[in-house]
Design a binder for these strands. Sequence first.
RNA 1: GGGCGGUUAGCUCAGUGGUAGAGCGUCUCGUUUACACCGAGAGGGUCGGGGGUUCGAAACCCUCACCGCCCACCA
Length: 887
Amino acid sequence: MSELSKTYDPKSVEPKWYQRWIENDDFQANPKSSKPPFSIVMPPPNITGVLTLGHVLNNTIQDILARRARMQGKEVLWLPGMDHAGIGTQTAVEKWLRKNEGVTRHDLGREKFLERVLEWQDKHGGIIIQQLKRLGASCDWSRQRYTFDDAYIHAVQKVFVDLFQKGLIYRGRRMINWDPAAQTALSDEEVVSKPQKGTLYYVRYEGVEDRRHSLEVATTRPETIMADTAVAVHPGDERYAGLIGKHVWRPLVREKIPIIADEAIDPKFGTGVLKVTPAHDKVDFELGQRHHLPVIDVLHPDGRINCPALPDLDKLDRFEARKKAAELLEESGLLVKTEPYENNIGFSDRSEAAIEPRLSEQWFLRYPKTEQALAIVREHLIRFFPGHWEKVYGRWLENIQDWCISRQVWWGHRIPAWHKVGQASRLPITEDRKPEARATEIYVGIEPPPDSGNWTQDPDTLDTWFSSWLWAYETMDQETRNKFYPTSALVTGPDIIFFWVARMIIAGLEFTPGKSDRIEDNIPFRDVFFTGLIRDKQGRKMSKSLGNSPDPLELIDSYGADGVRFGLMRIAPSGQDIRFDEKQIEEGRNFATKLWNAARFRQMHGPSTRVPRIDDQTLSIYAVEMLARLNETIDDVEAAYGEYQFNVVAQRLYDFFWNDYCDWFVEAAKSDIFSGDEAKKNSTLAVMDVALSAVLRLLHPFMPHLTEELWSKFGFGEGSIQFEAPPRRIDVDPGNNQRQIVSAIYQMIEAGRNLRSESHIASNQKAKFVLRADAPQIRKEQETIARLLNASELVVDAGFTADAGTPVAATPAGELLLIAEVDRAAERERLDKEIAKLESELRTVKAKLENKSFVDRAPGAVVEEHRERQRNFAEQLAKLTQARERL
RNA sequence: GGGCGGUUAGCUCAGUGGUAGAGCGUCUCGUUUACACCGAGAGGGUCGGGGGUUCGAAACCCUCACCGCCCACCA
């Protein structure tokens, strides 16, 4: 074994091992292997993405699962890749072009622009993959996939054609969510609603048939008045009963519009009169359909007003037009009043622009297999961790709407549909909306229609998620699928439960990529673990604009990848948001150093054994105790993995190693190591080897580089730690009696240290301690206890008489006295405090035992525990009181 | 409007029926031959409020408050 340097240096250790693992192809998955499979597909980060703490969290968890599975002897596939991210990438490249070259995509034209995107992608894209390697991610990089690989594009288009032929995809003119900034349609899931402070305008619409019967309408959108084609009231609203069927004059662009009645109107809102604007509101559109109202569109796709009849408003941005419209109404005396109003407005998830409901011809998917998708999660064929996400998933599927899958962006999978040139591809508004009505003019197929007529391809692209939903299997060839599909687990954020998780489940059920038709062979994954969201210390979301998002690479530079991984995992409660604090990462680094130094200590005292064994006969009681706690740790860790509680695993290992192993066992073991007794020393060193070997293996999934480094230095096992089996329980049985003795000794040591501190004896000053008890078990351990107390000597003497004023503490092993010059007044005060505390505890226990119900009803063991506690307290109290009296 | 989380020490969080915990921060002591990225000790909490169940509640039930998410076409 080569010598360990004084401090652990992640910068020299981590890259070295990562490179070696790659060179050895340690992460490569072999579909021909006879080992049981374990597989994960990485949620593909956007090609434009850079590593964030969210990625670190997510991928560390996947790496932990992958590495643990390798140790368990499984054939592991962790499949990495990237997402072309249609709107996101297009926006990023457009921004870049505008900034660097001052051109827009329209200046370049579609073809040129796409060339530029590809250029940009090769130059700036995929940084995140290199960054993931710094983290130690054990992905099979030879299988890296991209949603824009040729084969993948083909698969996406094939799925489109297939679903079209099944009648599940159709084209239709409907109200969709329009993003005026990105100028594309969006799915419902891509719209987030946020409360907005605005104004409610009360506008008068004058009566046509009778001037006196004018109506007041409350609206938040006066700029769309020109598109009103009716006003509506509730049929039961007595205020307006006589007016239904009559007409009012529409303001701004004056025209006669009918007063209609519809159940959808809430008489309690505003004045109970709704202006009906079928082109610019979803509810109004449906109302318009029911009442056969015309549709007038007064908005350009970019959100500017399109109304040449009203030059004051025409071409104005919709928000400016709103103010202007209010002014115009005011001038004409039709604005009755305004009041501040807050309502929910939909915003684009991507561009953050306010969404316009817009009537537009788009492609839609009627989701298949929704019932089945619901059932397999409800019946736990797919398990969610934490389980409460099942409800969120269920509610979405129960209220599922058709999916608008076409996008008017250029960067994306081109829709495999063809239009006959010369025929209008956009139909007039009044045309029947049923899809089959236009089946004749459109051809759907990956290749253009064979008749070589004037066909042009549909200009639209597909929603990015329409490609991601195939990720779980389109990334694998048939042989790989046979071995690794369905995947074992999916690790992702709950924010994409609808976007991705649910749709992948549906895709698996619909396209049955598995090796048989059985449902359990076709679901995309068995377990889904939802991570929390990382927030800053104040609980705010991490965001670029707030500047509160630390750069993970800087963290890795400062604390090492293993330190970052461990620190983050220790504070990541399952399923809850995580408050990030760099201090926690520092603790991870500190833990790595602690492990390093404990290993150094072991290494200083001689070579380790390849396969360490312990000798039952020579074990110290401290060793047995430590091994017993190691066994408990192994069990707890096993259980926590079963529930995906990574923070519990990390915390358990941290506690065991730092407290049980380092603070207690190693300190106690120094007696044996420095005793000069070779047999004792070797026995203790063997115990250390057993424990360290186990700890390294337990920690390896969390801290792969450091554990590999130490494993190789110690020479445990044949080769890499990566393929070593996790430790099993060690065969020791301390028995209750021995554990009690160790516990008594440890408590006695704590009491002694406390005495020393309270009596102001410096920690480096040797002091004499006396245990006033007849305790042969303790007498045997005198030397070790003295070491842990930093005592000049420890005397065990039941008949010891001390001077009045000698500091004394009651311990389970007996009275412990500190022999030193002391301040009697201070000692009196200390004893009074301790006595008061004991008395109060005794009172509590006594009261409980005097409660007949407790004694009768509580479990026997609990009652017995209380009795023993009472005896102990009483005994200790008597001794302390005696000592106090002597003072 | 509906649903789901959360509220425990100054901070970040464990703790699902039996003496309230950890780390960090604070204060005191310490460089005692693994580790100052360390060791030892101390202080610090009416477990968000109020009811209830129970011999016993931080935990189970009800209710309220506050914080955070998600869903929903009230203009």
